[in-house]
Design a protein around this nucleic acid. Structure first.
Lengths: 175, 175
DNA sequence: CTAGATGCAAACGTTTTGCACCCCG
DNA sequence: CGGGGTGCAAAACGTTTGCATCTAG
């Protein structure tokens, strides 16, 4: 992300905090910068190690509390890609209507937008007697290239960990 | 749910377990019965108290393990309605393509189906070079009736708990 | 007999909280 | 100096696991 956009985003965050009578501390600034510098989905826990280094560490509690505020501000959105995993998506600022396709082979996440789907969702919602406030479409799918050719750019002939989250058991303390 | 359908579902479950060389124990039968007897979304934890009584208790571990199997069998589906909440939906057996609309006012969940949306999702998925395996559309919306008339069948003039999940702090053990 | 199933309690990863302290206006 | 902010560690939560035991075939 260019410096230009980041500046704008920092300004937007600052304005939001100010509008609620809250302060825009250096921790919050560091967080916003980290979150919106690249376009990756992230779990709150992921941010902790990334803040250990340069910008000065930010505590877990502050991270969680700030994320909540950013979601409230509309700058950040919680998404769920299955398995009870709670991710945050900073890309709704740039494309407010995007959806997610998850490849079941390699777990790649593809963001896409489609005006027709969007119109249709609004249509259905109104037909049901509601006004839409937020929509989330998640498609799980398998890669045709992989099936036909045996490989795709993300999945090379079975070499890719499918990303099944497995908990590693550790040595147990005896009773 | 009528006895007829329940019988069919029990049979389907039994067949699935058998096909995998697994047993259809009385705990599993009790669970399947409980899950598919009504059409409610549920959290695994919800099932524990409901099994304390009549049918003989089933342990937490068994509940979680069985749910995993039922999901694998395709009879049960994991859904996510936001807030990191992990719910299971037993209604995909009857309507395999349904989606969810959540009222932001009263948190009521409305299941709906729409062939056009479905076709369109397939279309987009193929255009991206994939074959759809599963789709989840979640719409959050506010109730028009409530906004215009001040009440709806679920939300009576602010009397309804919005269902915001709040953790209740307990007495702390001193350090 | 034996592979699968169960229950228990411990452990896990994540998120929230109480509280003391800090910082800034 | 006062209200919001932070960090820490503990607690709460939902889920998974090891293991001893049971059970069905």
């Amino acid at each position: 992300m260019d410096q230009q956009s980041l500046k704008a985003i920092l300004g937007q965050a600052q304005a939001f905090f100010a509008s609620k009578g809250l302060r825009f501390t250096k921790q919050r600034e560091a967080l916003v910068t980290l979150i919106f510098r690249n376009h990756e989905h992230f779990r709150p826990e992921d941010l902790i190690p990334k803040l250990r280094k340069s910008d000065g560490a930010v505590s877990r509690a502050t991270i969680y509390r700030t994320i909540l505020l950013l979601v409230e501000s509309g700058m950040l959105r919680e998404i769920s890609l299955g398995g009870g995993e709670r991710l945050y998506d900073p890309n709704f600022l740039k494309s407010p209507h995007h959806n997610h396709l998850i490849c079941v082979d390699c777990r790649e996440i593809i963001e896409f937008e489609d005006p027709n789907i969007d119109v249709m969702q609004n249509c259905i919602t109104r037909r049901l007697g509601f006004s839409p406030t937020q929509k989330a479409l998640r498609i799980e799918a398998s890669c045709d290239r992989l099936r036909l050719l045996g490989s795709c750019k993300n999945f090379k002939a079975g070499k890719v960990d499918k990303g099944v989250r497995k908990r590693l058991p550790k040595a147990r303390r005896p009773l």
